[in-house]
Design a protein around this nucleic acid. Structure first.
Lengths: 248, 248
DNA sequence: GCAAAAGTGTTAACTGTACACCCATGA
DNA sequence: TCATGGGTGTACAGTTAACACTTTTGC
């Protein structure tokens, strides 16, 4: 990717991004689809990533990959961890694929994984980058990926889950205005279990990290829901007093 | 360090280890002291670390550093995160120091930090490695280090704190047999606040992750304390049912 | 008027927290 | 006998968890 800057690339280190999105139904992840020239082989996906430049930090490299692919900037992006297994490129098809993109595909590469949270509603990654076969896949539907990317995805998913319990990062997956049912559904999907509707709402409202707006859903064939927004200020006050557990 | 294997070193990636120990009083960290040839300059310390070999994983490299320095194997060792700031080597004295140890000290190096938990009682790192000026320093007494090591230390300290709340990793800092007071003190030191003695003991005992032994302290000028040991099996049962918060 | 999702209260069980005194030992 | 840290119980407040019906809208 980005052959224009090759002279500058650090050949030994890459970043890979696990970009999560939520469509009010399922947790999804942005994947790049390999054109399958091996008939009969299961379609294979990889995470977006790139080698880093010598004069950028890992954070900058991850932001760059994210922007190139989605056009998005200033979104939630956090380092997961470095991966270094010696057989990252052990699958033959992976080597072939890499050969098309990099100068020395056999060389050992250590990758630093990041995970990002984006609001995917009304957003199509293809609009920003139509040259690549990019798509959102439900996380739960994926059970294999190229390289060690499935391991990275699983680790990122797990990290998202643990972090959601102690910090209000889930709001990054929703639009600015959202309904409590949408928030509720998000927590259920990530926690992987049902959460009592009444208890959930009561807790969110009592913590005062969501704020009711004077605006309701329109055109829905049922009682319209109020919109809410995340109140960062209140959350920060809460965090100062040592809050670190939603109790889900 | 370890010049014998130079031909094999990956010049772009190093590991650094934050090795924590607990002496029943304070949380300590293993540091390497630079021989200060700059009079008047505050003594400077660094974390133990090394460039990685091309044919080892990051985990292996970290284990190697740990073993070379302490002689210890199979102890708690976990990746923290990768650090890549472009001015890691910006302090002139740091460059000079590195020049003595590496071929190309100016080259950009990304480091992957690990943290380890060891039982330091009756243990002297010098015994295993007398060539280096290695010592345990109280974490709270350190407010500056070489390179970006102070940032790494702070991050590791913070991680230890958060993780201790949700997983029983603190036992790695204690001997196999310990008293509840020692465990209590450990949690207070890492949490950075007083914890009610009665409530603390009640909780640990009720969770059944500690097990009372038929053995007591001897020769202490006060009522002798019972020894306890960590019960991994019970903890795992607990973890299966979704336990992830000690509530401290 | 019906289907669909929004919104709302109460109770019982459990968990957290605050707090003070007697006990066993060595010197 | 004194100094030192070990060890114990209780009551109140707050939090979690379980549970079912009414409301508002579009069709």
């Amino acid at each position: 990717m980005d052959n224009n800057y090759q002279h500058n690339l650090n050949k030994g280190i890459s970043v890979d991004c696990v970009i999560f999105g939520f469509d009010f139904e399922k947790l999804k992840v942005l994947v790049i689809q390999r054109e399958s020239n091996e008939a009969g082989t299961m379609a294979r996906f990889s995470l977006p990533g790139d080698l880093i430049f010598d004069d950028e930090t890992l954070d900058q490299a991850a932001s760059r990959v994210l922007k190139e692919l989605t056009g998005l900037e200033n979104i939630f992006l956090e380092q997961l961890q470095a991966f270094s297994s010696l057989n990252r490129l052990s699958k033959p098809a992976d080597k072939e694929w890499l050969r098309q993109m990099r100068e020395q595909p056999e060389e050992r590469v250590i990758t630093v994984a990041y995970y990002a949270l984006v609001n995917l509603n009304g957003f199509n990654p293809m609009a920003a980058n139509f040259a690549k076969a990019v798509s959102w896949k439900p996380v739960d539907d994926i059970n294999s990926m190229a390289f060690d990317h499935f391991e990275i995805l699983q680790k990122a998913h797990q990290q998202l889950h643990s972090k959601l319990k102690i910090q209000p990062i889930g709001f990054n997956l929703l639009p600015e205005k959202f309904t409590l049912s949408q928030l509720h559904k998000l927590y259920e999907v990530i926690a992987g279990k049902e959460l009592d509707k009444r208890n959930f709402r009561r807790k969110m409202i009592k913590l005062e990290i969501v704020e009711k707006l004077n605006e309701k859903q329109k055109g829905v064939p049922h009682k319209p829901s109020s919109f809410y927004q995340f109140n960062l200020e209140n959350y920060q006050k809460l965090a100062e007093t040592g809050f670190d557990n939603f109790g889900f």
